[in-house]
Simulated scan of single mutants.
Amino acid sequence: MLYNILVPLSEYLSFLNVFRYITFRTAYAAITALVITLVFGPYVIRKLKEMSFSMKSKGYEPERHKVKEGTPTMGGVMIVGSAAISTLLWADLRNPYIWIVLLLFMGYGLIGFVDDYKKTILKNPNGISPRQKSGGQLFFAVIATFLVLYVDKTGVSTKLAMPFFKNLVINMGYLYCLFAVFIMIGTSNAVNLTDGLDGLAITPSIIAFVTIGFMTYLTGNYKFANYLNIIFVPGAGEVAIFCGAMVGAGLGFLWFNAHPASVFMGDVGSLSIGGALAGVAIIAKHEIALAIVGGIFVMETFSVILQVGYFKMTKGKRLFRMAPIHHHFELAGWSETKITVRFWIISFILALIALSTLKLR
């Protein structure tokens, strides 16, 4: 909004030219979202407590999780609200990619909100049914995919670039639609599975948004994209501002979510974060890089898949002590802080590997 209001005035006030730069607006989008979250966070947490939006045990978590009962959940509304407000304030609202990623972000947040509401207020520990949740995720993923294809005027939206290979770009055609929908649903569920310990999901998400946001900026800049031999997507660079807002909102949320957590993000946070992260990667044509930088989310998801598959194949035996895998390490005696910090370190290393793909091709 500020871009649309102030840039036309730069003809008369030259110092307003700074609002033309994506890097400037991305930085201040992060600061704005951070300030909003820190200022309004205590009020939101207090209201969540008053309205009884608090964590309820499902009965199968490790014993130490019982002390977390009663901690407010649905703190993801802080992330959704602050990131959305900051994006609308600093982004060029004429850019269609901004609206696509916001649609996905808010849509998945809505699904998570309904799920959290049923778990807390309606006291249904399972929330909405898997069919309802999957149906909602599919609905918004299909709409977002269609809009990305519709907006694309250069024919790159169905192409998949393979990192580490200089000229290996696969045009998937209409199969890309299925691929994109799978990524959005899969990533949102993966972040949701990871959200099991204080600070465990939000920090890898922040790292992922920093990484993918930087890649998005390069993708939207013709000179950088040409130099790095990556797919150029006109207008995609503006989405870096949303990524900046997500980084700021995530850091603000971590202030309250650090161990011992004062609030949990709930499904409203994890589903919206995962969906938006996938949406940005799809717009920026860095889908494979997302799988690398989001390796923690991939690991958590595959631990559940392997656990269920092994349990069925062996008729009752377990591959891990408990899945997702962070619970396995809990039962192995690791402290919660040790697990989260080590997972953060892994996320940082994976981010460096993902960034290296920009040149290793």
Rank of each mutant, 00 (worst) to 15 (best):
T314F: 11
F242K: 08
S82P: 05
A225W: 06
G279N: 01
G235M: 10
I22C: 02
Q307H: 13
F105N: 03
I128C: 02
T357I: 11
L218N: 02
A84C: 11
I292D: 06
N126Q: 12
I183A: 04
Y217A: 07
G70E: 04
L147V: 15
V298T: 10
R131F: 13
I241Q: 02
F329W: 07
A144Y: 10
D92A: 11
L9M: 05
M162P: 00
V142A: 13
F165Y: 13
L197E: 03
G295F: 12
I212F: 13
D267L: 06
G295N: 11
R361G: 11
V191P: 00
A208N: 09
I305R: 15
N192Q: 06
I79E: 08
N257S: 07
V308M: 13
T340N: 02
W344K: 06
I345W: 10
G333F: 14
S14I: 06
A83N: 04
T357C: 11
N167A: 10
V18K: 08
E69T: 07
T32M: 11
V239I: 12
L193G: 00
G279S: 03
V181E: 09
V18Y: 07
A33T: 02
G248Q: 04
P204H: 13
M74L: 12
V7Q: 02
F224H: 08
G112S: 05
M106F: 10
H286V: 14
S270K: 05
N257I: 03
N167M: 08
T194S: 08
S57T: 03
